[in-house]
């Protein structure tokens, strides 16, 4: 069992978290220069997608709740690089980044945000409820914590089917206080299910800080009652995420049971679009943005390691802008769902 990493309580900015898994630099052969460039691309794609989603929301083109992932990009991009084939992914309602990392088409995701027929759920799910069987992405769930038993059930099915596929089950620090999370951890440990629980600790469950919500703020220790090894990870460093993720996924794949990763991360935007985020200081947000930004961090590795120059990164940026521009265009011009869609997909074969 990994040793829990001690952390001072009440610390306002847990600067660089010390992961048991060391962040490996570009000199490490386990992450190729091409992979590093892919990570950069994928994180920037999520960032730009979310910025555009925020803009479309501001224009009234996206309705309802819209939870942006800006700031947390390193978590999904790092974790996605550790899985393969039929491994499954499930998360909560802050899900746009997970879908893009899983390889879902930005057009289909954006068109779902605008409630159009070209969206992944034909416009019937919206921001919080999207799925792709093809990419083994099982949602997008709107009830805090509900995805955790479901993700554990995906792991149950992986084991039942006899392969060695793994379920990545993401939850936030807010969900980490839900009873069903612990019911799931118990069963996963009892039955040695191949699931990696990834707590994305962005420090606030809506407006309530972890310190005000959890009696034990070291969320990676929340599986201890069930003997689940846990590890705190610097979720702003994609390489640290990948290193910890590889270990956790291998643990689950080997049949040793569940593993818990606590990603120390930060969301720059409010809980949802309509959250003015008065529960935290502007200085705190600025400090994360200027000192801990996951994309800037990787950018520096790429430049300092001479893996990519400014011109190359600018080209990546331009390509992504075009992809996002096309997605936004598609999302605004894909037709609204036909009224007959009201009555479809209520039941299979009825």
């Amino acid at each position: 069992m990994a040793k829990p990493v001690a952390k001072a309580k009440g610390e306002t900015l847990p600067a660089k978290t010390k992961s048991a898994s060391k962040s490996r630099g570009p000199g490490d052969n386990s992450v190729s220069p091409d992979q590093l460039k892919t990570f950069y691309h994928d994180m920037l794609l999520i960032r730009r997608f979310e910025e555009r989603a925020g803009q479309l929301y501001g224009m009234g083109l996206i309705g309802g709740f819209c939870h942006l992932y800006i700031g947390q990009e390193a978590v999904v991009v790092g974790m996605q690089s550790t899985i393969r084939g039929k491994d499954s992914i499930i998360t909560s309602y802050r899900d746009h980044g997970h879908m893009l990392a899983a390889g879902m088409d930005p057009k289909g995701v954006m068109a779902e945000l605008t409630g159009r027929s070209g969206g992944y759920s034909k416009g019937k799910g919206g921001s919080m409820h999207m799925f792709s069987r093809e990419k083994n992405f099982f949602g997008g769930h709107g009830i805090v914590g509900a995805q955790v038993p479901i993700g554990t059930g995906l792991a149950f099915a992986h084991k039942y089917n006899g392969g060695n596929d793994v379920s990545l089950t993401y939850l936030g620090d807010g969900a980490a206080n839900q009873g069903q999370v612990y019911e799931s951890m118990n069963m996963a440990a009892l039955w040695k299910l191949p699931v990696v629980y990834i707590i994305e600790n962005n420090r606030y469950g809506m407006g309530t800080s972890v310190e005000r919500a959890s009696a034990v703020t070291e969320l990676h220790r929340h599986g201890e009652a069930f003997g689940i090894p846990g590890e705190e990870v610097d979720g702003m460093d994609v390489l640290a995420v990948r290193a910890a993720g590889e270990k956790a996924v291998e643990h689950a794949r080997s049949g040793a049971g569940p593993y818990l990763l606590e990603m120390q991360t930060y969301r720059y935007r409010g809980h949802s679009m309509s959250d003015p985020a008065k529960y935290r200081s502007k200085e705190e947000v600025d400090k994360y943005r200027s000192e801990r930004d996951p994309i800037d961090h990787l950018r520096k590795i790429l430049i300092d390691g001479k893996i990519a120059d400014e011109a190359a990164l600018k080209a990546v940026d331009a390509e992504i802008r075009k992809t996002i521009g096309d997605a936004a265009e598609y999302a605004q011009h894909s037709p609204e769902p036909d009224p007959s869609e009201l009555w479809t997909d209520v039941l299979v074969g009825a």
Partner: peptide, 21 residues
């Protein structure tokens, strides 16, 4: 046999069904 954990095993069953069981 499950533990006495209705919310958990009902959700686990739903996940298994989504996966095709």
């Amino acid at each position: 046999d499950t533990p006495i954990t209705e919310h958990g095993f009902a959700g686990l069953g739903v996940g298994a069904a989504f996966a095709g069981l």
